[in-house]
Every structure is written in structure tokens, then in C-alpha cells.
């Protein structure tokens, strides 16, 4: 599989159809992979793909991160189904245009939840939670796919969120608050969750704004709650569920539980799934005149 992608990447780089391929390469120790930027055709053999390739690469298509770099006309990117959802969402939000990217789709059986859990085989106990509910093992939109791409029906709803979300939601409000209070005690506001998110694309994040100072910078209860709740609300109807925020968290707070919950709410209330259409408008900025609630009239 990876051979076909290498050949195609080699051809495209040689013909200057794309300026760079963003993919995965071997990391510094055998359990890890690392994002690689291949600019020369002879380097394509560095590209690999296996269940260790957890990183969501579309973050390198985010303007806030300074990508695509100046002079890059078209960027090749290796995308798992979930990454391609993120790319689609970026296009829907006008952060990227479709002809700026060349997507190498890869079939994916799931990735490990964390590098440290990789021992050579992918099992239920080390597979990332997002993979068990995945309907894009075969990507839904790509420019190149190794071999024949089978048609998959993706019209159905997302699968329900991880059981943990529901367990948490079934708790009484004060218990749930206690849970988060305890979790957030560890947060020291490194903003890794923001930096790794493909959809955090503001030049100046609301938490960095000082006129007015909407969110307290200090990592105390108020500041931490302020940040995480704002982040969750800013991603309503936009989060494509790559789970990178939780993985990047150095103190292991499961911040994507918020996002998963909001994803369920958005889908339940408005029937909207983010990352599946480049043209459909997210529910929070539109209204329908035939809405079942008639207050809008």
C-alpha cells in the first residue's frame, strides 16, 4: 500500500504538481512516528503508514500555524479517513481551498491510542476510542487511493460517543462538576490542546485577548474552566473528533469528552455531522424557516 503512495508522491513531486508531501516517518524511538515534510522526490521512501501514525496532519494546513508555506501551490498530504474529515471541515470554513491540497487517502484499521501502548499489534485495549466508532476506515474524499476504493455508505449518523461520555452525562450536575474540578486541577494551561487542533484557526485566540480579558490567564479553577468551556463551545458543530487534544495533553485530561458530547448534541438536535460536506452550513450560523420550533418566525 505505502509503495503505491510513494510511487505516486515521487511522480507528482518530480513533475512539480505538488510542492511537498506531508506524511508520517519513523520517529526517534521504534514506538514512535513523526510527521515528515518530503520536498525532494528521492526522499519519498521515508514515508510510512501503520497504526502508530496517530498524528492528525491537517493541523499543518492551518493558516495560524503558518501553513501552507509561502510558495507552496499545492500540498500533498497523507490522510486517514478522520484526517480527511478535518480537511473537509477546513475547506467548509474557507481556511483552505480544495485545489490547494492533494489528498493521498489511506485505508486505516485504526490507530493506537497512545505511542506508549504500541507493542506491535493493534487490539481492543490499545486502539484509540475514535477508531471503534469510525465510519471512514475507507476515506470518503481523496485524490489518490492505493488500489480500488470501495464505496461505503456514510449517510447514517455518527456512532454514539464513547461510553465514558454517557456515563459522565448521566451523573448529577454537582458530581459532574466535581469530576471536572478534579481533572482541571492538573491543567496548567499549556494550550497544547489548542495548538494541536486543526480547527483552532484564529490569529489571536480569545484566551489571549486582553481588551477585554475574557478568560483569566491564570490556571486556577475560574481560568481553567473559562478556557475549556470556551474551547468546547467554539468547536460546536466544527470538531471532527480526531481526539488530538486529549492525546496532546501532557497531564492526561480527557478534554475531548466535551467535544464528543457537543457532537452528539449537534447531531441529535440538528442532524448535522461536521467534516462530511464542504458546502453544508453548520447549524449554529443558519436557521430554517420550516424549523419544528416556530419561535424563529
Amino acid at each position: 500500500m505505502i509503495e503505491a503512495i510513494r510511487t505516486q508522491a515521487h511522480n507528482l513531486l518530480e513533475n512539480k504538481e505538488i510542492d511537498v508531501v506531508i506524511g508520517y516517518g519513523n520517529g526517534s524511538d521504534p514506538t514512535r512516528t513523526t510527521p515528515v515534510f518530503i520536498r525532494k522526490p528521492e526522499e519519498v521512501n521515508r514515508l510510512i503508514f501503520d497504526p502508530r501514525c496517530i498524528n492528525s496532519l491537517p493541523v499543518y494546513l492551518n493558516k495560524r500555524q503558518g501553513y501552507p508555506k509561502k510558495g507552496w501551490k499545492r500540498v500533498g498530504i497523507i490522510g486517514k479517513g478522520c484526517d480527511i474529515r478535518a480537511i473537509t471541515q477546513l475547506i467548509a470554513e474557507n481556511q483552505l481551498s480544495r485545489d490547494e491540497v492533494y489528498i493521498f487517502g489511506v485505508p486505516c484499521d485504526g490507530v493506537v491510542s497512545h505511542f506508549s501502548k504500541w507493542d506491535g499489534s493493534l487490539r481492543d485495549d490499545n486502539r484509540a476510542t475514535k477508531c471503534s466508532e469510525c465510519d471512514v476506515h475507507i476515506p470518503n474524499d481523496c485524490d489518490f487511493f492505493p488500489g480500488e476504493r470501495p464505496e461505503v455508505d456514510r449517510s447514517g449518523p455518527y456512532k454514539v460517543s464513547a461510553p465514558q461520555v454517557l456515563n459522565l452525562f448521566n451523573l448529577k450536575t454537582d458530581k459532574r462538576f466535581k469530576f471536572w474540578e478534579k481533572e482541571f486541577e492538573r491543567c496548567f494551561k499549556c494550550y497544547a490542546c489548542r495548538e494541536v487542533c486543526p480547527h483552532c484557526s484564529c490569529n489571536i485566540c480569545i484566551t489571549d485577548r486582553t481588551t477585554p480579558n475574557w478568560i483569566d490567564q491564570a490556571p486556577h479553577t475560574k481560568g481553567v474552566f473559562g478556557w475549556h468551556l470556551t474551547r468546547a463551545l467554539h468547536l460546536v458543530g466544527r470538531c471532527t473528533g480526531c481526539g488530538e487534544c486529549t492525546r496532546a495533553c501532557p497531564v492526561d485530561i480527557q478534554v475531548d469528552l466535551f467535544n464528543q458530547r457537543m457532537k452528539d448534541v449537534v447531531q441529535g438536535s440538528f442532524g448535522y455531522k461536521s467534516g462530511y460536506s464542504e458546502t453544508e452550513k453548520p447549524p449554529l450560523i443558519t436557521y430554517m424557516t420550516d424549523d419544528s420550533e416556530n419561535f424563529i418566525q
Binding site: 495560524r64 474557507n94 481556511q95 484557526s201 484564529c202 490569529n203 489571536i204 450560523i285
Partner: peptide, 8 residues
């Protein structure tokens, strides 16, 4: 300067 052109 800071408009990120999402056009929302």
C-alpha cells in the same frame, strides 16, 4: 487584521 475569513 485578525479576521480569519471563515465568513460565518
Amino acid at each position: 487584521k485578525n479576521c480569519m475569513n471563515c465568513w460565518d
